[in-house]
């Protein structure tokens, strides 16, 4: 019976051996739109060169890239992808659809697996 206090001591010493408690990740991905430049001007039918970098501390869940009509808020999907990288760089050529002239927003939304969502936008003008 003398062994039981020793066993209890061993039990609690094992449980007490733990690293500092973890925290919930509240940091969303970092999104940078490198191209096109803000306020760039395009003609209908032009092809836009997009260059985007996304960094995430634990790993991405995915991204969506939209072309959004500023006057109506109507979105056109440019690209989306599911991935797990901690760093992702994409370059793509996007053929402008048949849309009315005016101001548009290029919106990049990236999310991680803890439902942290980050956005980056630039404005382009279509004439």
């Amino acid at each position: 019976m003398k062994t039981y206090p020793i066993l209890l001591l061993a039990f609690f010493s094992i449980l007490s051996c733990n690293k500092e408690s973890a925290v919930i990740d509240k940091l969303g991905p970092e999104v940078q739109i490198l191209a096109p430049q803000n306020q760039a001007i395009y003609n209908i039918g032009d092809s836009i060169h997009l260059q985007i970098q996304i960094t995430e501390n634990l790993g991405l869940h995915g991204y969506f890239i939209w072309l959004v009509e500023k006057s109506t808020g109507y979105p056109h999907l440019i690209d989306k992808k599911h991935l797990h990288n901690t760093f992702h760089e994409l370059e793509l050529q996007y053929q402008l659809p048949d849309v009315p002239t005016g101001a548009y927003e290029i919106l990049v939304e990236a999310s991680d697996h803890d439902n942290n969502i980050s956005k980056a936008t630039i404005t382009i003008n279509i004439q």
């Binding site: 973890a22 925290v23 501390n57 634990l58």
Partner: peptide, 12 residues
């Protein structure tokens, strides 16, 4: 319980 990666809980 939640797994942990580099000091962060993995909530999924």
């Amino acid at each position: 319980e939640w797994n942990e990666n580099k000091g962060y809980f993995l909530t999924d």
